[in-house]
Write a protein that binds this DNA or RNA. Structure first.
Lengths: 88, 88
DNA sequence: ATGATTTATTACCTCACGGTAATATTTTGA
DNA sequence: TCAAAATATTACCGTGAGGTAATAAATCAT
């Protein structure tokens, strides 16, 4: 379980462009924390061990695609692919 | 090289939600073709062999994240991550 | 401060990613 | 129809992804 309490601090970014594994890792960690979820929560829901989550959030470049997509989905997030510079 | 000529047929989707490796593969292949690029073109620009591109477009779930991101970038595409159902 | 919770690291291990290069198959254009 | 181009498949192979389980380190709550 996550710890507890209203510790919802910094402004939660609702969108981010992802070019690198590191950017993705940062975003996912921040988002997970903004939802007061622990890594253990994610591990429980997804099909993974702690190692994968740690490495994903750390921005490991070689994590496997579908696992990443699973985590994203399970966090209530989605990926959109589009032509570069498509305006919001 | 790609073959040639104005063979720009079916309507090119400019955005897609990506939930699975297969969806991504389909999108990337379609987009590549819409640009009249061959796999060899992509292989040349990216840092990969033919095997990776074939497998990526086929929707292999275990391809490595950063390689995928590289191909996306190099095709002039980008990924956006956002809360599910964020309206365009 | 201190115990509880969360996160990170490590060792062990199996399995398969993906590069290359050769070959096969499919698709395309004239 | 047929040759060229594009795509797919195969074998070979080194390297590393990631599950588990144990332990360590860091963070938090009171």
């Amino acid at each position: 379980m996550a710890h507890s309490g209203p510790k919802n601090s910094h402004s939660l970014t609702l969108q981010a462009r992802i070019q690198t594994a590191e950017e993705l890792g940062r975003f996912l960690r921040q988002f997970r924390q903004s939802q007061n979820l622990s890594q253990a929560d994610v591990i429980g829901l997804a099909n993974t061990g702690n190692r994968f989550i740690v490495e994903l959030e750390k921005g490991k470049p070689t994590v496997q695609l579908q696992k990443v997509l699973d985590v994203i989905d399970l966090l209530g997030l989605e990926l959109v692919i589009q032509k570069k510079g498509t305006r919001p």
